[in-house]
Design a protein around this nucleic acid. Sequence first.
DNA 1: CATTTTGTTGACCCATGGGTCGAACAGCAA
DNA 2: TTGCTGTTCGACCCATGGGTCAACAAAATG
Lengths: 213, 213
Amino acid sequence: MTKPTPKRAWGQAIQNRDEQFEMKRQVVLRTAARTYSDRGFHETTLADIADELNISKPTLYYYFKNKDEILFECHRLGIEAITDGDTPMPPAGTCTGRERLEEFLRRYVRMVLDDFGTCLVMTGTNALEPKNRGRVIEGRRKIDQMLRDILQEGVRDGTLDCPDPKMTAMFVFGAMNWLPRWYHHDGGLSVDALSARLIAFVMRAIAADRCDR
Amino acid sequence: MTKPTPKRAWGQAIQNRDEQFEMKRQVVLRTAARTYSDRGFHETTLADIADELNISKPTLYYYFKNKDEILFECHRLGIEAITDGDTPMPPAGTCTGRERLEEFLRRYVRMVLDDFGTCLVMTGTNALEPKNRGRVIEGRRKIDQMLRDILQEGVRDGTLDCPDPKMTAMFVFGAMNWLPRWYHHDGGLSVDALSARLIAFVMRAIAADRCDR
DNA sequence: CATTTTGTTGACCCATGGGTCGAACAGCAA
DNA sequence: TTGCTGTTCGACCCATGGGTCAACAAAATG
């Protein structure tokens, strides 16, 4: 659950003023995301986060409006990690549903094992103020829909065979969202190896040609 | 996530003194488990629980030592629901690993969609005091082991075919532990139907004769 | 009815922790 | 040196909520 922490100090690189500001914001967010995931949102005090960065509590308020905003930003970054990944998902139609499914699972696993993704699935949205809460829920809904669409696409083009795409999606999300609770980055198993195993498991369950071995 | 609440009043049935005491304890626990699951442990105040039962906060302290103990009892009941179910699991050897797996999954799904089981998988153990925390973790470890053993048994007797029972167990637990987050008792899908779907999904993935259809 | 035991409560205590404020301090330009 | 702006912090405020207590109500007991 906790990645090997770089443990970089607070103000390191001396760059442009705005970049420095944005960089420090990021450092706070990463630290917060980790701590929220480990101990839970309500069990984490702002003093905890500040201490971990060797800064004071008011300094946090120089970079963020309040505790909620920090959590919201973590969730937002987690969601963006899939929806607007660095390389976009291959659009529907360019390859089989099964191939798109594999790609989606690979991305999602990577995302959910990154600090922000982990935070997204480990901490509830209850703490967020209504407006931000709604945005997060909407984001997650879109991701849900993405997987459902892919499954249906695979059923249509004959590369997948699952009786109930909606429910199947939930089972698969469950398996993936649970990863941060037991997978440790320091073990012998790499994220890529893990996602390969998970993909194999899912494919055996729903790939149309699942009698291959 | 929230079952149709009976909403029974506080002191209803007039029975033996001790039974009454124990019954009221149970009512508190069920209410607490539901609220903890819905809103989260830290988001739930003792006043919330008390209000829901139309009693006062100090009354809770007449039945329980503190907030932690209430949570612990919920977890304990959740764990017992599988380990010491009303009818014991068929012992290893009396049937195939695959059959035992089906039975285990059926039980686990039922448990995890009951108030206490839901509470067990929805709320973290961080809040518990060290001693109780250890007991809960131990309980969950035993349940983990149970599934792993069943999987290995199935591999041995040839009814199951999964390359890595440990990891497979985690995937399956993930899918099941995620159920309370999306399944609603008031929908058209019964718990039994749901567990049948989940079992079908898992069996397609790891049953040795998974080419049946 | 008196008295003890069992249940219940309003009112209170107080540690925790989110959030604020004004002072201080850095760097930099004129 | 003087000011200006961006950054940091010690000290403080105060609402929340877990937990307590003494008093009161309600059965049981005799």
